[in-house]
Design a protein around this nucleic acid. Structure first.
Lengths: 333, 333
DNA sequence: TTGAAAGCGCTAACAT
DNA sequence: ATGTTAGCGCTTTCAA
């Protein structure tokens, strides 16, 4: 036989008060006589009463849950963000519904709508960029949405980011001190972050140092841990002696390929990568990297969302967090 | 002004039918005349009606949401499991509430209870072991719980695991072919997995090969990426020429320390690690590793949970998945 | 300080 | 095949 669920009504009856009073006690409403509060709490304890959050959500139109759309939880880059989000969420008594999108626009729209159906109080979106389809959905809803680590043109959204462009410019300049031919290795050029941040930051650095831009040095595509040989070949075809790389795994692939071919890093070739993941510290030499405050990106995004949900005044809807460049063994001093 | 929410009642009125009929259409109940169904669907489309999952949850006592308790999302080991869980969950129309526990027993109990308050239909627990406090809570509730990748004594739970003991025995035996003194490096001995699986598997292998067990070769503790020197020192104090390591990051730390001290891997020292994470492929030499089917562990756990939630007959509550040993450069052939 | 009562938006008998 | 109706367990006016 199913265990009978204890409701607020049971507590009210046992305590000899009304449901309203029990509700007040449970919700910490101060307008309850201490004696009454004590009595009610005793009954709650005795009956082991637990408020039903679903009923509460229906009645109050607040679920104290927020949705998180993430490319994939198993991607360390985004899961660090997710951890920051959850920690702040818990701090403000929210729970997180996690939905993987694989950066597939249709899936994104689909999970976005199921999150709305579940009546989440807000949504944090994580991803490299925001597809037009999802953009339209977001603009159509009144549920607050914050984008974290996502480059989105225009001012229509609340976003948390770092100045990727500056970070890349600084990295490139650092390499320009000792190198003339510097490769830029990023993901596909369709992404705004690659097109409007990495490439532009790279070009700005060259310009500042009066180095002519050479399109052959820009290597964009879908690379992974097995792309080492491919990249080595492309690098070899130019005479690049250094590279700024947009992804740690790709940087590691390149590093290993260079070393397999007898090249010394950083003596013969310097590398600066972008995400400062554990990978950077595991390989030899350790990789110099741009440091994104991933956890903070998530934490600040969630904090901003709590403010929007509470209808507080927001001073700045597009937050930019500071970044650093961590110098390690893959660059010369 | 707030946008007026469209309810099932609005649709019913506009379509000239009752709420019940709309509900049937929305839920795919076959007892609706095709013409009626069409009419209702048109109105749903026109009004852009979206069923409120919270109301539905309250009325039906099913939320189509499951809770996932995870040590930390940002830990690749567990986030791979989480990905497997979510994929199967989506397949069965469930959503996931993700809660980080940091393997802190009090936090675990706390999140467990908030998940119950949110009326999740089931819970998947991830963690190295299960603390008595949580164990008690789980036994007290009627909400189904499945443990994935968690070693728990007794038959009280539904669990998905691999045969750690066998995997460690096989690894040790592989090393015994070429080595007499093999170190075992794991986390703290309090954890059941270290005490009852790693250590036992290790001992079984020794026994089988008539090698006397030497307690000095068992190195247990809280190691991380910076423990390399410490481990090197301990290894050096014995004359071990090989090691079975319980964690990839620790294996990498050891590998780097050995090489920093001029030792050659695998010529002077062999290593087998345990989680076959990307780390294994990133370092040089690549690490030979036990391969746990992490994604599958999560997927199978969620599949089992769906069966329990649907009150289907379960043939086996303690599933053991197959493992492999992937041979790479840190072991000799 | 407390209580009564009307919903929140939906499902699920039960009738028809 | 469709409609009626009584909840699901709680919050939230409004009154007292």
């Amino acid at each position: 036989m199913e265990k009978q669920t204890i409701t607020i009504y049971d507590v009210a009856r046992e305590a000899g008060v009304s449901m309203a009073t029990v509700s007040r006690v449970v919700n910490g409403n101060p307008n309850v006589k201490p004696a009454t509060r004590k009595k009610v709490n005793e009954v709650i304890e005795r009956l082991d009463y637990r408020p039903n959050a679903v009923a509460r959500g229906l009645a109050s139109k607040r679920t104290t849950t927020v949705g998180v759309i993430i490319p994939s939880v198993s991607n360390v880059f985004f899961s660090s963000l997710a951890r920051g989000i959850d920690d702040i969420a818990v701090m403000y008594k929210y729970n997180i519904i996690l939905a993987n999108s694989d950066e597939n626009p249709d899936k994104e729209v689909s999970v976005f709508n199921t999150l709305l159906a579940k009546q989440v109080d807000g949504i944090v979106y994580l991803g490299n960029s925001i597809a037009p389809k999802l953009r339209a959905e977001i603009e159509r809803t009144s549920t607050p949405v914050v984008l974290a680590g996502t480059v989105a043109e225009g001012d229509a959204f609340s976003t948390i980011n770092i100045r990727y462009l500056d970070a890349v410019r600084e990295s490139t300049e650092m390499l320009l001190e000792r190198n003339k031919k510097i490769a830029l290795i990023t993901g596909p050029s369709e992404y705004e972050i690659n097109k409007n941040h990495y490439l532009v930051g790279y070009k700005e650095a060259l310009k500042k140092h009066n180095v002519k831009f050479d399109p052959d040095l820009v290597i964009q595509g879908d690379f992974d841990i097995d792309s080492g040989e491919d990249l080595y070949g492309q690098i070899k075809a130019t005479d690049a002696t250094a590279a700024v790389v947009g992804d740690d795994v790709v940087a590691v692939a390149l590093l290993n390929a260079l070393q397999d071919h007898g090249m010394k890093v950083p003596e013969d070739f310097e590398i600066i990568t972008s995400h400062n993941s554990t990978y950077c510290q595991i390989v030899r030499p350790k990789l110099t990297s741009i440091q994104l405050p991933l956890y903070d990106l998530g934490a600040v995004a969630m904090r901003l969302l709590t403010k929007i949900m509470a209808k507080e005044e927001i001073e700045e809807h597009n937050v930019l967090l500071p970044h650093k460049i961590i110098e390690r063994g893959s660059t010369r001093k």
